[in-house]
Design a protein around this nucleic acid. Structure first.
Lengths: 140, 140
DNA sequence: ATTCTTGCAAACAATTTGCAGGCAT
DNA sequence: ATGCCTGCAAATTGTTTGCAAGAAT
């Protein structure tokens, strides 16, 4: 039975701005950058300050609701914690980040082990062009 | 026959500080962070400023001598360009970054393709503990 | 009513840029 | 001698923090 996680424990108060940010992640199926969060949240609460976004994201990470996704391109984004093991795809054209359907990664650890490296985990990002950008390209 | 690349074309002048930084990369078999470059270079030229390191690294990237290695942990480091395709290993204990011997990565692109993602390249970082740290742990 | 949160602005940290003097050519 | 490079300091950019007013409990 899939873990049904209830509303995350925030500091102690459920404010309008926290509610909006949490809902954003419930509704968006892909990782979001801080600026994206800010922009999207401002559509609901125009006065929302960037500092609040930073603070809320930090809390949401501490309570285990969000985790960071580090992108080779430099920017970090955030996604819900507790998803099954998976990797990410970043589109070269629009820059958006998507979750890849499943981890189909096979690494031959033999050579590494021989040289004394003990692997514990890995992070993979695939680059290319995403479905929407592909369609757009084909359409034109 | 392995490509023997001659001294990189810098802006136009071969200064002491540029010489030192280039030599650093010739001698170090693993990616270096900016601060590492700065510290190591200062052993040769104590007055070397951080701005010079930033500027030199930027130039060395533009002329194709260096490339960036983005680490999921957030920090970037730099390595010589033109090495064969490979990935990186970051040690959980000492934080250092190593080159992995070869790309043993196999990704099943089938599912991705079905969903419309066109893969062009990938970047992988493996985390764990490195040979020196392993020895240390075993020794104690 | 209490005290946690917010938004603003100031504080920080990391990186870049402007400039006058120094050095490679 | 020329003008590219360097080191310093000021300027940017991205993120964090302090504080008084506002909101959730």
């Amino acid at each position: 039975m899939p873990e049904k996680r209830s509303a995350p424990r925030l500091g102690s108060r459920l404010t309008k701005q926290r509610e909006v940010i949490v809902k954003l992640f419930e509704e968006t199926p892909r990782p979001l950058r801080l600026q994206e969060i800010h922009h999207l949240a401002q559509k609901k609460i125009p006065a929302m300050g960037i500092a609040t976004v930073y603070r809320t994201v930090k809390i949401l990470r501490q309570v285990g609701f969000l985790r960071v996704v580090h992108l080779p391109g430099g920017g970090d984004c955030y996604e819900k914690e507790g998803l099954r093991h998976h990797h990410h795809f970043q589109c070269r054209h629009c820059g958006k980040v998507f979750d890849l359907p499943e981890c189909t990664l096979r690494i031959d650890l033999g050579k590494m082990k021989e040289e004394g490296f003990q692997a514990e985990s890995h992070e993979l990002v695939v680059f290319g062009s995403c479905p929407p950008c592909n369609r757009r390209a084909r359409g034109v």
